[in-house]
Design a protein around this nucleic acid. Structure first.
Lengths: 206, 206
DNA sequence: AGTATAAGTAAGTATTCGCTTGCAAAGATA
DNA sequence: TATCTTTGCAAGCGAATACTTACTTATACT
């Protein structure tokens, strides 16, 4: 009984493994993320998994790198744009929430694993990802206040803390009531709340 | 070698086991919450754990009941008081955040376990706890709007969603940067933000 | 005093876990 | 064609897992 799978370059295999990892965590739960089950999902032997990743933790750290590239870096670029603060804020929030929706709230999945393992490097990495989001958010808000679009408000870090609650809570509720988030678009509604929080002086953007 | 521990009634043992459970999760991580390790923490044999709880999951479900009694019910009672909405809001928020601080963000610990196990009953229970918090929060806000203390605002469920983000994000950051939350009191700062969100018409409360 | 119940133990069980090893062979390069 | 690197597999490792079983004994009650 020959069951060897056709060969593929490591770069592709790594992507497949990471994709399967996220699918297992969000669909079957973290407990079912065994190397055996993972191997079955990508139709490879268990040993081959370890050909492409040194350890199970390495897979998740690699996923974190992806999140940094696919989520945090774009967010940072949005924050650094020259467009008006209102425009950037909308793009920032909607991109953020949309990414998490498309990726099953990947950051919370990663947090769950980091908390489970109590892995210092993973927790540190996650803390850094969250901090970056808040920093970039604050850049936009600061610009808005400087240009008089928004009122000089309260502590900036309190506002960015409150902002961070939006994607986090959304990710958690996606796990608790998955069916609710299939179609609904949170962004505009939340955007209005944030506007109110910022004491918008001009009316603009839908 | 006799190693039997002195006897104690089941009600006390159950409390000890639950306390040790939370301590292990928050200090050593969920992974180290084995029945063996748990038994060591309460200085009992592993078999005795199962004398007091049918299964490991039962321990965590029992902790959820405690949260319902110690957190959700008091929150509900605060919401139903006859005091002014501003007074209730402050008490509500500060009690909520203080409880989570004292208990290492127990709800997030429970969520982590529920997500790990992908346990339907635990996820359902957690969803219910969160829903109740939002409902009771909305009771206060509705009163405030009815009595003219706060402006008629946007969708109430959006506001309560944003509120829920505060305790959740705080719990997560407590896990990511434990040292930061040792002394700092979040409540007044966050309270001011929520006031702004509600478009307070009168000035009151510190 | 006698007895039922509740609280304790040690030593298992079968199963799963992440990971390693030794070897085969496909595919690229020369 | 010859060689070297990469990708693959099957088999097995020791350790850990949640939970059970068979048995003891402290404690409370009649």
């Amino acid at each position: 009984m020959k069951t060897t799978t056709k060969r593929a370059p490591g770069s592709i295999r790594r992507k497949q493994i990471k994709r399967a990892t996220l699918e297992i965590i969000s669909v079957e739960g973290l407990k079912r993320l065994s190397t055996k089950n993972l191997a079955q999902h990508v139709n490879l032997s268990e040993g081959t998994i370890f050909r492409h990743f040194h350890s199970k933790e390495d897979i998740l750290l690699s996923i974190m790198e992806d999140v940094r590239k696919e989520l945090n870096q774009p967010l940072h670029e949005i924050a650094m744009k020259t467009a008006a603060p209102e425009v950037r804020l909308k793009e920032f929030m909607c991109f953020h929430l949309d990414y998490l929706k498309r990726n099953n709230g990947v950051t919370i999945l990663l947090f769950t694993d980091a908390a489970y393992q109590n892995s210092a490097p993973m927790l540190k990495e996650l803390h850094d990802l969250f901090r970056q989001v808040k920093q970039d958010f604050e850049i936009i808000i600061r610009d808005g206040i400087a240009t008089g679009v928004w009122q000089q408000g309260f502590a900036l870090d309190a506002i960015s803390f409150l902002y961070l609650g939006i994607p986090i809570t959304m990710s958690i509720e996606m796990k608790l009531i998955p069916e609710l988030f299939a179609e609904h678009d949170f962004c505009p509604q939340m955007l209005r709340l944030v506007y109110r929080l910022l004491g918008t002086t001009k009316q603009k953007v839908s």
